[in-house]
Amino acid sequence: MKESAARSGNRQGTSGGDFKDCFRPEDYFTASKYFAPESLKEAVEILEGYGGDLKVLAGGTDLLVEYYERLYEVKGWLDLKNIPGLKEIKVFEDRIEIGPLVTHTELEKSENIKEYYPVLNRAAADVGSPQIRNRGTIGGNIITASPAGDLLAPLMAYDAEFKLVSTRGERIVPVGQFFTGPKRTIISSNEILSRIIIPLPGERTYGSWCKVGKRKALIISSITLALVVKFNKERVIKDIRACLGAVAPTPVEIKEVRKRARGKRIEDLNFSELGELVAERISPIDDIRGTAEYRRDVAREIMINALEEIAEKAAE
């Protein structure tokens, strides 16, 4: 009874007609809690107390879409907005730490992100629309864990780690171990993502980013590629990360690319072969954003383009 009331309150209230009859603000209040603690310590204590009943809230641009028409299911929010430090980008000697509440717009505008992680910077600029980028956060993108999350392949390509805190302490999890399936991660219901830690890439690191979707703006990616290549002084490839989104249940790195390319000069690589390798190793599905066959074809081509782009940049 209450549930259906909440539903009509949410939706029909604004769909025209005499909404006074069907809009009941009290519908929004049914059995819901709201916490906005002022420290991380307090936050994890509240979370521990309520367990899975609270939704941890950052920008809300994913949660309010996911729970659209079933907001009544949300038993309460734990809003992170008052916790100091979660909106900062801090540069250390060997790493950058990004707070989970940093928005896509902030990632796009940050000079540090532009300089050190251009692939992440460009991916952030490709998220949703200005309205979404102004509100949506890096932490939200990670925790939502959509296979198509635009920041995830870049984070993987830069070897990011995630700091998770709970009342029992903290742990740091590498991005490669964090995602377990579509919208699934290893984070427990009593943990909060408190930092995104990315090692500084060092000199002679080049990156390429590609997002393919049915239109330019406001589109869930059909496929994304983040390629990051590190060279030594002799222009030999020290390390290479080819990471893709929307082509598997989680963002994936094609590790065979590393094996084939490390220790070689980029001009000695066979780009078509590496493109073919990427196309073979992904495990895409057919869905409304593209068929598996299409995704394999596109993966091959964008991998070749990315290698060409990096070869050009490295030659400068």
């Binding site: 809230l57 309010l64 949703g128 309205q131």
Partner: peptide, 29 residues
């Protein structure tokens, strides 16, 4: 209110100087 899920932008307002979809913002925040 158009779509209610941040796709159409009909509900765009300026919040602290930035355009946002007001359908994806909780007033409590």
């Amino acid at each position: 209110e158009g779509c209610g899920i941040g796709e159409c932008g009909a509900c765009t307002v300026i919040l602290n100087g930035e355009a946002v979809n007001s359908c994806l913002v909780l007033t409590g925040q």
